[in-house]
Design a protein around this nucleic acid. Structure first.
Lengths: 210, 210
DNA sequence: GTCTATATAGGGATAGAC
DNA sequence: GTCTATCCCTATATAGAC
């Protein structure tokens, strides 16, 4: 029980950051919520940013896992949907990072570099998938279109939750919120697809998005 | 000279917010920069949020203007590019709003409602343009695709600057930054276009994006 | 309209006892 | 490992003189 405090601080911080937004949570709030003293918190972590960094490291491990390309087989549209789903769930669990992304990454050089690296890796990943779809003849896209679309995939993925929050003013997650985000990403691909695949995607979407 | 102080506070606040980010600028910073006393600042504005609200009101006026549909004539791809350019310039001038969009709009109900309204109006606007391109036969898209794409247009537009900042870690604006954003938005349309228009768009883009 | 001075509050962080 | 107590600093905001 004794050595678990460190982990409890991380868990509680994550929960508070996600609900209220990282800038609106103080070290006192965290200590309060845990029923420990502020001093105790500073025994385990140098400062608030130290907590943020450790949470980010957790996130990084999980998202890197989600970015690993499963196998050499060309992904189907269902595969792509599924991989997006895993990524979105991961991002949801650490959504505080995305809520104040620019502020957080501009205040902390280390986080900025790591986040930028993840983003670039993910973009390359998306580009590879798109090229695969092109090579197999399932879609038709120029090199420039693929590059631009890969960026748009990451842009929409990264900021869907923000867009949704600003548009709807939600606090609580609606069951359809993430699904809707995945749908928006898939719709970036739709117009590139051949008629058969394009139709396939739309029926696929109809099953997931109500 | 006397009654101009109010405007000078707004101008200076805007400049500081844009450069450092609104959460990182205090009323003291603003007063310092203007060589006036903090007390004087509070004579002109109730608090910092009051300043933010007035700046937002300015922004709202300008962006609403940019959202007015020019005429009944169907917009060409060049027209669309130009209108995006006007919108991006306007957003750039008030980029502090977009830098911390979720935090700012979640703290202030009035701003959230107004921003949400702008976003919805702009989405409807984009949808109308897309439908126009469909009706004229320049592109082929289903109703669902048009709706999804309109959302993606606004998502990419709204968060392009954030995406670019996180990816590159810029502070200063590169000459190509906004152009690149416009390009990313136009690339959302490219795959829907008929071959002739699709090619036209790419040559058009090649002229603007170096 | 503008200043000086100040009140108030809160957050970040540390020292030292237990 | 944990607590209490406290310090420092900064931010917001106000009062009252000029």
């Amino acid at each position: 029980m004794a050595t678990k405090t460190r982990e409890r601080i991380l868990d509680t911080s994550l929960a508070l950051f996600n609900v209220r937004g990282e800038p609106n949570v103080t070290t006192n709030h965290i200590a309060d919520e845990l029923d420990i003293s502020p001093g105790n918190l500073y025994y385990h972590f140098r400062n608030k940013d130290d907590i943020v960094e450790h949470l980010f490291a957790r996130y990084e491990l999980r998202i890197e896992e989600a970015l690993v390309v499963p196998d050499a087989r060309l992904p189907t549209l269902e595969d792509i949907w599924l991989r997006l789903h895993v990524a979105f769930e991961c991002m949801w669990d650490y959504r505080f990072i995305y809520r104040d992304l620019v502020d957080i990454t501009s205040r902390n050089r280390k986080l900025r570099l790591h986040f930028s690296r993840i983003l670039k890796r993910a973009t390359a990943n998306a580009e590879a998938v798109l090229r695969g779809l092109g090579a197999s003849g399932e879609m038709r896209a120029s090199r420039a279109e693929i590059e631009a679309t890969a960026h748009n995939v990451l842009l929409v993925t990264s900021f869907w939750m923000s867009y949704n929050a600003v548009l709807g003013g939600h606090i609580e997650r609606e069951a359809t919120d993430l699904t809707r985000g995945i749908y928006q990403v898939m719709m970036l691909l739709a117009p590139f697809l051949r008629d058969a695949e394009r139709l396939h995607l739309h029926t696929l979407a109809a099953n997931y998005v109500k």
